[in-house]
Amino acid sequence: MVATSTNPQGSTPIFRRKLQLPFPLNIYQSSIGRKWVMALTGIGLLGFVIVHMIGNFHIYEGPVQLHEYAETLRGLGGGLFPRTFLLWLLRIGLAGMFLLHIHSAYSLKERSRKASDKADFVGGEKKYGSKRDYVAANYASRTMRWTGPIVLLYLLFHLADLTWGWWLGDDYVLGDPYHNVVASLSSLPVAIIYVVATVALSIHIFHGTWSLFQSLGINNPKYNDLRRTLAKLIAGIVLVGNLSFPVLVTAKLIDDDNRKCEVGDVACLEHEAEKH
């Protein structure tokens, strides 16, 4: 189609089109393509959040079952792959999804900021002199750029806490995740961090789950109402499910009392797991 004209005294493009990269990278050059990537990685991360939460429910069965679950993850793909091979693939894929999700979110935010500033007499974000009256945008949609980074910070904290055992010190027992969770969450400040992060994640998911349908163009009057319902459902499940861990540990309903295997006796855990 025709090349566009330019208006000598009118608006000139804010974003000059850069060199077109070859397919499929050119899709990621456009904002809409980037939203697709954000939505697709969002779906992947949602899958991870839900599977991770369900896996952690093993904690309600006891130390042996949680240990067994962790072992199952390491041995995933059994006879086909070497031990921990598939787990590492999943971890790398997950890290890649996080990176893409964050890069697309950050770069699109920058584009929107550039498209809004200088239009503004106040400086910073687009503002009107009268108090901005949001009509449709809800709390969740306006805080995506806060809840996202909160989840990221929490993620790093969580890895250092329970994967690497940075500050549990001698209390961190490799191979006894049940004990590690109890030891970590027994500290009230840590429990509060988990609660805050879970609330932030659920708010993020509440807008994200609805938004991803729009981004991917999944829109049909036959089921459009269900998209909101699904967003509420998933956000609700993630909220209640993940809140249950810090709350129940704080309430001393999950603790190290009455264990069949002594804390740190990984050999006993293995032996008990064999019996299943």
Partner: peptide, 20 residues
Amino acid sequence: VDTMETFFGSCTNHGECHEA
């Protein structure tokens, strides 16, 4: 869309446009 993106920001599905 390509022309739009040389001038404007990126949608985050707030829905303010529809209300306005």
